[in-house]
Amino acid sequence: MKIILNHSAELLILIFLIITFLMSVIDKLTDWKGNVAFLKSHFANTFVPPLIPITLLIILILEVLTTVFCSLGIFEIIAEKNTSYSLVGSIISCVILLLFLLGQRIAKDFDGARHITIYFIVSVFAVFLFQN
């Protein structure tokens, strides 16, 4: 119990990242066609539409990796007091969010880009915590 209390911020951030990216993975797996259709309309006036299926697959793989590493990170913190998996999961989450930000900027969806910044702050803070 003491380990959980001493690492509560780290554990809560990992849970936040797991929920965020696991729900995104589930959404992509259960509604792949809907996601592709939405993204094609979102990026209709850009060069992106032909790249959407492969990009979405890459994002899906990165989200699965983030979820796995952050989940392993919880157990690693509790069992071994180590943060290697947590750091990797947090870094991958930052990469994903930077890709999302790039996409929103390409689509000129500045409000969407602003919302991604909130998630990015949490992810960068996680990287900061797990590097120490």
Score class of each variant (00 low, 15 high):
Ile121Trp: 11
Phe125Trp: 12
Glu63Cys: 15
Val95Phe: 04
Glu80Ser: 14
Phe120Gly: 09
Ile61Asn: 07
Leu56Cys: 08
Thr46His: 07
Cys94Ile: 11
Leu87Pro: 04
Ile54His: 04
Thr55Phe: 05
Ile91Cys: 09
Ile58His: 11
Asn35Leu: 06
Val36Phe: 07
Leu60Ser: 04
Thr46Leu: 07
Tyr85Arg: 00
Ala113Val: 10
Ile59Cys: 07
Gly89Trp: 00
Ser84Gln: 11
Phe43Ile: 02
Asp109Thr: 09
Ser71His: 06
Thr30Phe: 04
Asp111Glu: 12
Gly73Ala: 03
Thr117Leu: 14
Lys108Trp: 06
Phe130Asp: 00
Leu56Glu: 07
Gln104Asn: 14
Ile106Gly: 10
Glu76Val: 12
Arg114Ser: 14
Asn82Pro: 05
Trp32Val: 09
Ser71Thr: 15
Ile52Lys: 03
Ala113Glu: 04
Thr117Lys: 09
Leu101Gly: 03
Phe75Gln: 01
Asn35His: 12
Lys108Gly: 03
Leu129Phe: 10
Thr117Pro: 04
Ile59Thr: 12
Ser93His: 10
Ala107His: 06
Gly112Ile: 04
Gln131Asp: 09
Val36Trp: 03
Leu87Ile: 09
Arg105Asp: 05
Leu87Arg: 05
Ser90His: 08
Val64Tyr: 03
Val36Cys: 03
Phe100Ile: 08
Pro49Gly: 11
Leu97Thr: 03
